[in-house]
């Protein structure tokens, strides 16, 4: 079990991101006129506000370790692994959707995710994985007139 102080960690990461943004924003904003407020003004102001608040978080984390807002996040490696796997499965699903097609990709993703969510009832999983994809596809096609990807792999 790993324990991290969420105030220090979130404050630190946010502060780092804000520093990167403050350096990047001037080069990321195109401006054509010089009167009134510049398009970069509000992004800079809001980023600076987040940076200041991040410093507050870090200070809170260092000074007041016992208060509720500084409660450490307890995370097991298994939990992190499950979340990471779930994210990976979702990214692959979206990535292959157009290539493999909605029905095949969704069948596979339902089986993998059902196992990841702890379901070991194969009959339940297979029935859901076989019924849901065509049902969703037909619903979108006939009620919303939207065609979901049929895939190019099997053409």
């Amino acid at each position: 079990m790993r324990e991290i102080n969420k105030n220090i960690w979130s404050g630190g990461v946010l502060l780092g991101l804000c520093v990167v943004l403050i350096i990047q924003i001037p080069g990321q904003v195109g401006t054509t006129t010089d009167d009134s407020l510049s398009p970069a003004f509000l992004p800079m102001l809001v980023t600076a506000l987040i940076a200041v608040m991040s410093v507050f978080l870090i200070v809170q984390g260092v000074l007041t370790k016992d208060i509720a807002t500084a409660t450490p996040v307890k995370q097991t490696f298994a939990e992190i692994g499950y979340v990471g796997l779930c994210i990976l499965v979702m990214i692959i699903y979206v990535g292959i959707l157009k290539w493999v097609g909605f029905i095949v990709a969704t069948f596979a993703v339902i089986v993998v995710l059902a196992l990841l969510y702890g379901n070991r009832n194969w009959l339940q999983i297979l029935i859901t994985a076989m019924v849901a994809p065509p049902a969703i596809m037909l619903f979108f096609r006939y009620t919303m007139l939207v065609l979901l990807p049929e895939g190019t792999l099997f053409n």
């Binding site: 059902a114 196992l115 969510y117 702890g118 379901n119």
Partner: peptide
């Protein structure tokens, strides 16, 4: 069951 609900 959660194992059906969340995949959907």
């Amino acid at each position: 069951p959660r194992g059906i609900l969340f995949p959907l």
